[in-house]
Design a protein around this nucleic acid. Structure first.
Length: 351
DNA sequence: AATCCGGGGGC
DNA sequence: GCCCCAGGATT
């Protein structure tokens, strides 16, 4: 009977819950921002971003009004950049349609951009004490182990069954604590990859997988597909004052962020010089840089690079190019980590 | 239902 | 290398 986990879980959580910057503030905006940041992202990675973000944009109105360049800069390095664009769109919805107050109702929360079933449940239960489940990857792992549910967790049907089961046992007085207790247990005790610390688990005796010594067989997940390889040649074009950057398209991978100019495939020095001349620039030196690799969840970039000194960047015809000096680079342009290996040359003094 | 969308930390 | 993370939108 699943209901038996409620009391021991809440007791365990009361004693073991981590102190987190967004926890116990009684502020729905803090809950919201933290939940968006925590999507597919670990607690430790989020902490410094959360503090900085809240300081810069302390409330829904500030978020709604923030220029997108600053918004992306605040998110730089966190990944999944649509999260923050969607959150701003939702903030504008909140201002225009909900008098600037983050909705309490689960269904209304669901109607906001970037808020799906998990995040709606998290905000409703944690910030507003509504009795709705919040099923994330941690909860799926914990519950499939306790119940020895061998369904593929990537299927909606499995998730729905778990949400319904949790709805029935949800403690009406502490739904937020209950949801967080499940997630906390999944994050620190009931962890993946054969690392589960069952001896520390408050509900081990109620766990079917523990009792049958099958913990590591759960959760069941469909095999992931291979990631595609993409070769690129990256250009670090400098005139001694500035480095050429380019703004990426507003849709797709790394949308709206800045990058070093680059072309598909690996090309030799001559073609690299040709590329630079076609921009209207006069190359003075060319230098091969170390190759670099960046792995996304679904793509792998294999990058080769040239650093090219030109007489003056001002001659470039390409209207998409931006000339970033050392100061601007740090403040204005959000450059994703994919270019991390070469980003340091952007700021570095040229020879 | 399958695919797209980042980056990092732990093993 | 491989796993997976306080997921959601789009097709």
């Amino acid at each position: 009977m699943l209901k038996k986990i409620v009391i021991p879980l809440l007791q365990w959580y009361n004693i073991n819950k981590r102190i987190l910057p967004w926890r116990d503030r009684n502020n729905a905006y803090y809950t919201w921002v933290s939940e968006i940041m925590l999507q597919q992202t670990r607690v430790e990675a989020v902490k410094p971003y959360f503090q900085r973000f809240i300081t810069a944009l302390p409330d829904v109105q500030a978020l709604a009004q923030c220029p997108q360049e600053q918004l992306l800069k605040l998110w730089e390095g966190l990944g999944y950049y649509n999260r923050v664009r969607n959150m701003q769109e939702a903030a504008r919805q909140v201002v225009s349609e909900h008098q600037g107050i983050i909705p309490e109702d689960y269904q209304t929360l669901l109607s906001l951009k970037g808020i799906g079933s998990y995040t709606a449940g998290a905000i409703a239960s944690i910030a507003y004490h509504k009795s709705v489940p919040a099923v994330d990857g941690n909860v799926l792992r914990v519950i499939t182990r306790i119940t020895e549910n061998n369904g593929d967790i990537s299927r909606q049907s499995v998730r729905r069954v778990i949400e319904e089961a949790l709805s029935e046992i949800m403690p009406e007085d502490k739904p937020g604590d209950f949801n967080q207790a499940l997630m906390e247990l999944g994050a620190v005790v009931c962890i993946p990859n054969g690392m589960a610390k069952c001896e520390e688990c408050p509900v081990a005796s109620l766990c079917q997988a523990y009792c049958h010594d099958t913990v590591d067989r759960f959760p069941v997940k469909a095999a992931k597909k291979e990631r595609r390889q993409e070769d690129k040649t990256v250009f670090i074009i400098q005139d001694g004052e500035a480095t050429a950057l380019r703004k990426r398209p507003s849709k797709g991978l790394l949308a709206g962020l800045y990058e070093l100019p680059n072309v598909p495939g690996h090309i030799d020095r001559e073609r690299a010089l040709e590329y630079v001349r076609k921009l209207g620039l006069d190359p003075l030196y060319i230098e091969e840089m170390p190759s670099s690799r960046h792995i996304f969840s679904h793509i792998e970039w294999r990058m080769e690079a040239y650093r090219i000194r030109v007489s003056s960047l001002e001659k470039a015809k390409d209207k998409d190019l931006i000339f970033a000096d050392k100061e601007q680079t740090g403040k204005r342009y959000a450059i994703p980590s994919a270019f991390g290996a070469y980003a340091r040359y952007i700021k570095e003094e040229k020879r």
